[in-house]
Simulated scan of single mutants.
Amino acid sequence: MDLNLHNKVVLVTGGTKGIGRAIAEAFVHEGARVYVTARGEESLNEMDHKEGITAIQADLTKEDARNDVMNEILTKEERIDILINNVGGSNGSTVAETELSLFREAFELNYFSAVHFSKLALDEMKKQQGGAIVNISSIFGRESGGKPTYNSAKAAMISFTKALADEAIKDGIRVNGVAPGSILHPTGNWQKRLDENPEKINAFVEQEIPAGRFGTVEEVANAVLFLASDKASWVVGATLNVDGGQSNANF
């Protein structure tokens, strides 16, 4: 299926490994011009040598860094067509044992980076009267399961996705989200846990994931590409679970 993404200018935050990398590579396969961000220099250098990808080093917990990233893209391209807010991570432990500063840190990375980039992209997309934003949250943004700092930030992202979507669609800009479940990839936490205790993790998969296996980064990327494309023209404000049935939420 031709998704009509050829020559689209795309920004994927946290785009050098795992889900972000799969999304970036999928857009390149469709002929898009892709920019990725990350903090790690080694992974950035690797991605920067891939055809169709430009890598930008940035600490996206910093407001100035986010401004610089968008300015660099607009200087080179004079537009942005698609924004994928993917950067994220978890910290802390229980609510009682987690310092308030770690909640702030989690929100800065997972939530405020997405809000800020969305506002920056919105200004440009309004000029074009078109564009797409896809926010990568988590099924744990709808229910417990991950660390409280992460859950809270992803829950806020899901709410933000709907609020922005209803506001932006009048300018031809579609905003949606994807909520992955447990995804296995070489640099992820699930792979680490599987290596450390395969019996425990295999039991988790059997008990908690109806599909009977972990998801793949490519399966998440496929959903993202669809939502970013004109094929999803009537999908506005949705956050789609991509989880093999893992989520217990029925909405």
Results as ranks from 00 to 15, higher is better:
66 R>G: 01
66 R>K: 12
70 M>H: 09
71 N>I: 06
72 E>S: 15
72 E>L: 15
72 E>Q: 15
73 I>V: 09
73 I>F: 07
73 I>K: 06
74 L>Q: 05
74 L>I: 14
76 K>Y: 00
76 K>R: 12
76 K>F: 00
77 E>A: 11
79 R>Q: 06
79 R>L: 01
80 I>P: 04
80 I>R: 07
81 D>H: 09
82 I>H: 00
83 L>A: 10
83 L>S: 10
83 L>V: 11
84 I>S: 08
85 N>L: 15
86 N>C: 07
86 N>F: 08
87 V>R: 05
88 G>V: 05
89 G>K: 02
89 G>V: 07
90 S>A: 10
91 N>R: 10
92 G>A: 08
93 S>A: 14
93 S>D: 15
94 T>H: 07
95 V>D: 06
95 V>A: 12
96 A>Y: 00
97 E>H: 14
99 E>G: 02
101 S>N: 14
102 L>D: 10
103 F>N: 06
103 F>S: 09
104 R>G: 02
105 E>K: 06
106 A>F: 01
106 A>W: 00
108 E>D: 14
108 E>L: 09
111 Y>C: 11
111 Y>V: 08
112 F>W: 15
112 F>S: 12
112 F>Q: 10
113 S>V: 11
115 V>D: 04
117 F>K: 14
119 K>C: 08
120 L>Y: 09
120 L>H: 05
123 D>F: 09
123 D>Y: 11
126 K>Q: 15
128 Q>V: 13
128 Q>P: 15
128 Q>I: 12
129 Q>M: 15
129 Q>C: 13
130 G>N: 12
130 G>Q: 12
131 G>A: 02
131 G>H: 05
131 G>V: 04
132 A>M: 01
133 I>S: 03
134 V>P: 01
134 V>A: 05
134 V>M: 06
135 N>Y: 11
136 I>Q: 05
138 S>P: 13
138 S>I: 09
139 I>D: 04
140 F>N: 08
140 F>R: 02
140 F>Y: 10
141 G>C: 08
141 G>P: 04
142 R>A: 07
142 R>E: 12
142 R>I: 07
143 E>Q: 14
144 S>V: 13
145 G>M: 04
146 G>P: 13
146 G>W: 01
148 P>A: 13
149 T>V: 04
150 Y>K: 01
150 Y>V: 02
151 N>I: 09
152 S>G: 10
153 A>Q: 01
153 A>T: 01
154 K>C: 02
155 A>V: 14
155 A>Q: 14
155 A>I: 14
158 I>P: 11
159 S>Y: 02
159 S>P: 06
160 F>P: 09
161 T>Y: 02
162 K>A: 08
165 A>C: 09
165 A>Y: 03
168 A>K: 04
168 A>M: 03
170 K>G: 06
170 K>T: 11
172 G>F: 01
172 G>L: 03
174 R>A: 11
174 R>D: 14
174 R>M: 11
175 V>R: 02
176 N>L: 03
177 G>A: 04
180 P>N: 11
181 G>S: 09
181 G>K: 08
182 S>G: 10
183 I>A: 04
183 I>Y: 01
183 I>T: 05
184 L>F: 07
185 H>K: 08
185 H>A: 06
186 P>G: 06
187 T>W: 13
188 G>R: 00
189 N>L: 06
189 N>M: 05
189 N>G: 15
190 W>P: 01
190 W>G: 04
190 W>T: 07
191 Q>K: 11
191 Q>E: 08
193 R>N: 12
194 L>A: 04
195 D>Y: 06
196 E>N: 15
